[in-house]
Nucleic acid binder design. Structure first.
Length: 606
DNA sequence: TGGCAAATACTG
DNA sequence: CAGTAT
DNA sequence: GCCA
């Protein structure tokens, strides 16, 4: 690590912290810029930085009080007992478990010990006894500054605010215990690269760094939404393939694990983080860049550090999805249409099933009808639908819709509209400028398609406005009644036409080789078509934040069927009146909601 | 420390 | 009612 | 897991 180019990565004259234990920088009382500067400084000097408090042994921070230090540690789940003995000449404090009753003793107490050891530590042996121990230290930032100033390692002693030894969590719950155990097991099974066992600590990628220039380390200026702390995904542009896509893929896998383990809050948290990262316009180079994003904190920054230092860009927690035998099976079941996390777990734990064959063999009759369909077409429904085929499906649906309602419009929404190369399903919105034309439209379109053989199964029919309006209020069917969601049909689709090349056996019809597809047909009255299209075009987090933003900033309730006041009896807010086309109307809604317009290709929050 | 998007239809 | 889907 |  010390060849000619070490000059640049060491500023030409800095001490090396190579032999120091993992360092965690306490963000408290530090601006983001300062935090970044400190991190940069450490990285330049080969320090092992970590964002995982559980593996850090040096906590560097802009704090002065021991009480504060203990607080900082505890808030990060680091429980310690005071340990002063190994500080040369250190004040031996008994009754070590004082966690916060102290008021007068601060860093100064320990500093009285500083002179003694200074005599015997002026070189690499500095802090040696500490380095080879399992002690935890909270150290004032001044230590680093001093090291830089002296261009050499300086003993920590004068700067130690607190020193302790890890103890077991006093409130260690079963869940936490098993989590730790789980992590430990993962660590064992994890193929460690290289010679280290440093977990998620990371070093600067040497070769990479050395070949780059002086201001290599200055991260690109943060985008507006970072500096302004814009925390709504619907107010940022997130492209289909963002620069940090590989990291996002890993986080998405972790989120999937959270789904499978019924951790809804974890799912939401990861979704928020992912959405922010998906909007970030350049590749991260430092974990501190991650830290600056709204919705991302130490946990995510730490995962990025792991991502960066792992040779193959994989995260242990993400790999579990393919590695862990339980998660593998749960995931397998979860991908059956009609089976969610609860049912997948039920299949595994209660029924003791392990694959689709078990389901078919031992539980077929206990499945719901749609679950049977989901199992039957398991592989085909998981295949993505190429864009050309989505367009084809849309043409057919439009043709049938036009036959029953001339003048109807068919809008492809969903992943297709965001630009995805292959969609999980085809989402289509049907609308008509004549509102009366949308009544019973789903039913008419679906039966027409069924008759012609395009729809093989109807998984669900949601009939709300049409039937009810017509039954209860035939005279004013469309006036103001927006308290319901849209009519829709969730169907299984298959192109009925195929080459019957060998009519040699006329009795036996040849099996249709075309894959089964999932198609959603949504009906929207024209007056809210902008809302429908907006509500059906964004990724989940985009849509979630749309609603959150409408609520927080306007006191409105937004969904694909319209916008209304949150007050009881909520007045309908018509934001799209005046828009001639559905595109214009969607834009009016976005502007009216105060999020500004952005094309569907920039609503990819993952 | 509480909140996190949201409503509705359908199934067993 | 609990669970799933959009 | 993050934030107000």
């Amino acid at each position: 690590m010390s060849d000619g180019s070490s000059i640049s990565s060491h500023d030409g004259h800095g001490p090396s912290f190579t032999f120091y234990p993992a360092i965690y920088v306490l963000p408290t009382h530090l601006s983001l810029e300062s935090l970044h500067r400190v991190e940069e400084c450490l990285l330049n000097r080969d320090a092992r930085l970590t964002y995982d408090p559980s593996e850090a042994r040096v906590f560097l921070g802009n704090i002065g009080q021991r009480k504060r230090a203990i607080l900082e540690l505890r808030s990060r789940g680091v429980c310690t007992e005071l340990e002063m003995r190994s500080v040369p000449g250190g004040v031996h404090v008994d009754g070590a478990l004082d966690l916060g009753t102290e008021t007068e003793s601060d860093g100064q107490t320990n500093q009285s010990t500083g002179h003694l050891k200074r005599a015997r530590s002026s070189d690499a042996e500095v802090d040696g006894s500490f380095i080879n121990s399992d002690l935890i230290r909270v150290v004032r930032l001044g230590w680093l500054e001093k090291c830089v100033e002296e261009k050499d390692l300086v003993p920590m002693d004068q700067y130690i605010i607190y020193q302790g030894r890890r103890v077991q969590h006093p409130d260690d719950k079963a869940t936490k215990g098993s989590e730790i155990l789980h992590r430990a097991q993962q660590d064992v099974s994890r193929p460690h690269r290289g010679t280290t066992h440093r977990g998620t600590t990371h070093r600067p990628p040497k070769l990479y760094k050395q070949s780059t220039s002086e201001n290599e380390d200055t991260p690109p200026p943060a985008p507006d939404w970072v500096t302004n702390h814009v925390s709504y995904a619907c107010m940022r542009s997130a492209p289909l393939h963002p620069p940090n896509e590989r990291f996002i893929d890993q986080l998405v896998k972790i989120r999937k694990v959270r789904e499978l383990t019924l951790d809804e809050i974890g799912v939401r948290a990861y979704s928020t983080s992912i959405a922010a990262i998906a909007a970030y316009p350049c590749e991260f180079r430092r974990a501190s860049e991650v830290l600056a994003l709204p919705g991302c904190d130490m946990k995510i920054a730490n995962l990025f550090a792991e991502f960066q230092q792992s040779g193959d860009g994989s995260l242990v927690a993400a790999s579990a999805l393919d590695t862990d035998p339980v998660l593998r099976v749960l995931h397998h079941f979860y991908r059956i249409w009609g089976v969610g996390a609860k049912t997948a777990r039920d299949f595994y734990y209660a029924r003791q099933w392990r694959d689709l064959d078990d389901i078919v063999e031992h539980g077929w009759n206990s499945l719901s009808r749609v679950q049977q369909i989901g199992v039957k077409y398991y592989d085909e429904l998981l295949e993505g639908i190429p864009r050309a085929e989505v367009e084809e499906i849309a043409r057919v649906v439009h043709r049938h819709a036009s036959a029953v309602r001339p003048g109807v419009e068919c809008i492809v929404v969903g992943g297709y509209r965001r630009g995805k190369e292959a969609s999980g399903d085809a989402d289509l919105v049907l609308s008509h400028r004549d509102e009366s034309a949308t009544h019973n439209l789903v039913v008419d379109v679906v039966s027409s398609l069924e008759t012609e053989g395009w729809i093989t199964h109807t998984l669900a029919l949601h009939l709300t406005t049409s039937t009810r309006d017509q039954q209860t209020l035939p005279l004013r069917h469309d006036t103001g009644n927006h308290f319901d969601t849209l009519d829709k049909a969730l169907v299984v689709w298959q192109d009925p036409s195929f080459n019957d090349t060998s009519p040699s056996t006329p009795e036996k019809k040849k099996r249709n080789p075309n894959p089964h597809r999932r198609v959603d047909i949504i009906i929207s009255p024209w007056r809210t078509v902008g809302c429908a299209v907006l509500g059906w075009s964004g990724d989940t987090t985009f849509e979630r934040d749309l609603r959150r933003h409408a609520k927080k900033s306007r006191g409105w309730k937004f969904d694909s069927s319209g916008v209304r006041e949150r007050t009881s009896g909520g007045q309908v807010i018509d934001l799209e009146r005046g828009g001639e086309t559905w595109q214009e109307r969607e834009k009016l809604v976005m502007e009216g909601l105060g999020i500004g317009w952005r094309p569907p290709g920039e609503r990819c929050t993952r």
